[in-house]
Design a protein around this nucleic acid. Structure first.
Lengths: 196, 196
DNA sequence: GTGAGATAAGCAAGCGCTTAGTCACGCTCG
DNA sequence: CGAGCGTGACTAAGCGCTTGCTTATCTCAC
């Protein structure tokens, strides 16, 4: 049971940090905020984590790895450009809407990471960007897409997906699947997919 | 001369705050950072501004008012949907790329505003959003655009423009006009503009 | 009785902001 | 004219508080 309790307390601190970082930002959050939101004393944070920045790094790395895996799965799920693009956009958008709290930290708190941690995260971000770019460029090469600037279109698709984390609200009129469905339509228009 | 000097020092503090808030965030910036970047002692900030938050509010309000004016001018510059959309998107994107430093504060430091200031800024943001929505909905009503969900498409267009401030780099391979030109093409595809 | 989880207490540093004053300047008035 | 004065930009010093993090101690299941 000690193993279970240990993991539980550690995860409660991470969950509290996610909430706090997302709503007040890394620098706007105190270690006391995190600890008390997890129902613990300020010192408890340091039993389970090395520092406040280490918590941010953990959250950021986990989130980026998850996003990269998601994109890779989308790419692997179809063998032609249109199906691949739709799968990637749908997965990306649903994830960024459903997990907008952690996605906000992943995308908007990069500047608070230490130089070494930032470098690691930047590598993951480049990998994600490259996957998107390959989807669009392959589509153009195979004649399925017609966009005049595949690199910039791929960047715009990524940008559109990331920004969902900024504006999406749980109380809003659309649920994550609604947004994803319409964003797939937009994405197909953006790449100039040859229609029906 | 005292009038000139007064304005100059005040503006230097604002410029220093813009740089610092944009790169380190509001809470990551100290009043000493701002003052010393403006070549002054820490106390000088309080000669010209009421508080650190007041500086943020000034930057945020000025930026939002400028953006709203820009969008309104784009809308007024043409009397048919396609020309109007292109004018708005071009102006919005060029501005967010060229002024990405201040645009970052405008779009990503809202949570650091006081409740009263946030309410004021939220009003400006609603006005900007409404302008975009009207452009798209009018286009659909007039038969120039065919998007299945005008409200969400308008939001996506706004989102795409805002996010330019996040990723745009002066050292990048594209200048603001390059990005704006391609984003106009993307925007026309997104709304499903009836072609040529 | 041991060891891991948790904490009370607190340290050094840094925070936003204030106070009390210096200084350069232009104006007043004998 | 020029001594005296008021004014406004600016600062040195520092106040009270909060910060991230540590240390010494306690607790309790095994």
């Amino acid at each position: 049971m000690s193993q279970v309790t240990r993991t539980d307390a550690r995860d409660r601190l991470v969950a509290a940090a996610v909430e706090s970082f997302a709503s007040k930002g890394f620098h706007g959050t105190t270690t006391r905020d995190i600890a008390s939101a997890a129902g613990m004393s300020p010192a408890a944070l340091y039993v389970h984590h090395r520092s406040k920045e280490d918590l941010l790094h953990l959250i950021s790395r986990t989130g980026h790895e998850l996003t990269l895996r998601l994109v890779q799965e989308g790419v692997a799920s179809a063998d032609e450009p249109v199906g691949r693009l739709v799968a990637v956009v749908r997965g990306f958008v649903v994830h960024h809407a459903r997990n907008h709290t952690s996605a906000r930290i992943v995308n908007y708190e990069l500047a608070a990471l230490s130089p070494a941690h930032l470098e690691e995260i930047a590598g993951l971000r480049r990998a994600i960007e490259q996957e998107l770019r390959d989807v669009v460029e392959d589509g153009v090469r195979l004649g399925a897409f017609t966009t005049s600037n595949p690199r910039m279109t791929a960047l715009a698709l990524l940008s559109l997906g990331i920004d969902v984390a900024r504006w999406f609200r749980d109380e809003g009129e659309w649920d994550p699947e609604d947004v994803a469905a319409h964003y797939c339509e937009l994405a197909l228009n953006m790449v100039g997919a040859i229609s029906r």
